[in-house]
Amino acid sequence: MNSVVELFARFLLFFEYFLTAGFRMACALGCYVVLLWLFLTEYYLAARFPWWQGWWEYAFLVPAFGLPAVLSAYGVCRLERIRPPMSPMAFDERDPAKMAVPVAAWVSMLREAARNRRGLLLGSFLRWQARLLVRYGAGVGPLPRPQLPRVWRRTFRHALALAWFPTLLVYLCSPFSSPPMETLAAILADRPAGVERMKVGRVDAKIGLIEEDLLAKGDENEWYIQSPAKFPLGWLTTFPADFPRVYRRLQALSLGEVSGCVVAPDPRVEPGLVTLKPVRAGTATIDFWRSAEGSLDLQMELTLFRRDSVTVVAKAFVH
């Protein structure tokens, strides 16, 4: 049992090393996490799989933790196989005396062990421990090897250095990560935000699937169903021009003195005069049913929102 605890403690120490070993390593790991978020949440998979939403949007956390965890496990294995001579790991932890050594002696042994190692990982790991002991070990008395991490873990500065990783993950999982992404995408977009194309469809018992593209007129904010008599009910599919934006939401609002239709995000949902649906895989589909009181010329206002459901990206009107 003690050996398992010791191995886990070393695993945590290696994990800590990968988070705080230096600015370049932190930048590399941070870029890796952001790219995972972009491809697994904001862009790649969301563009190809409409069901990639909800809890799936947090799937990037698995490889985000997975890479440093795998590297930490590898470091523990290397350390167990090759215990560097003259290093703290060379002492037998089963010794009941638990030899207590001054911090300066530990620093010397760690540096000597690092010089005797050819491997980049173990050498860098040992030098990292020596640096932390030099930085935070002033005034600390003799310590046994298992208590060395307490020298730096009790300091606020080191806790702050560790905090960047969970802070980044919490930020990417929160709604606050979407506005900067929206702003960057707007700067880099090759065409203005809005609805690029629409089509209407339904399933007829005799003919089967009937689909028809809507006609855009004027400034392309006005869209018209070419054969309204064919679609007493069905679904309206929109294609936003500036996809991908995982957190975009499309609102459909039935207009007119006498409402021409009712809308719903799904056929299984009770329809109403207004509905809201997230944009997924570059499309959003709204189901509609014409009301008996309304004319064939239904009127519907489509509003594309950001994730907050307040900031308007674009508007369009369907007739």
Rank of each mutant, 00 (worst) to 15 (best):
Y171R: 00
L121V: 10
P149E: 13
A252S: 01
M25V: 14
G54D: 07
A216E: 06
F243W: 14
Y32V: 03
L184T: 06
R202F: 10
L273A: 07
M99W: 04
R117A: 05
L120E: 08
T311L: 00
S177R: 09
L148T: 14
C261Q: 13
E112D: 12
V274I: 06
F49Y: 03
R78P: 03
R249V: 12
V200C: 05
A97M: 06
P96F: 04
L122T: 15
G256D: 01
E112L: 00
F14M: 04
R306A: 11
A186L: 01
F14Y: 08
A193K: 01
K217Q: 11
R94K: 10
A229Y: 00
R117M: 04
G208I: 12
A281Y: 11
G139T: 09
W223T: 05
W223E: 09
F60H: 03
Q129N: 14
D219P: 03
P85G: 11
L253R: 13
D190V: 05
R280C: 07
L126S: 04
A130L: 02
P175G: 06
G256S: 06
V200K: 07
E220V: 06
A90Q: 14
I210R: 15
L143C: 12
P180F: 01
V263K: 10
F305N: 02
L40R: 07
L19N: 01
V151Q: 05
L71K: 01
H158R: 13
E301M: 05
E270A: 05
P278D: 03
T41Q: 11
V274A: 06
A205W: 07
A104T: 15
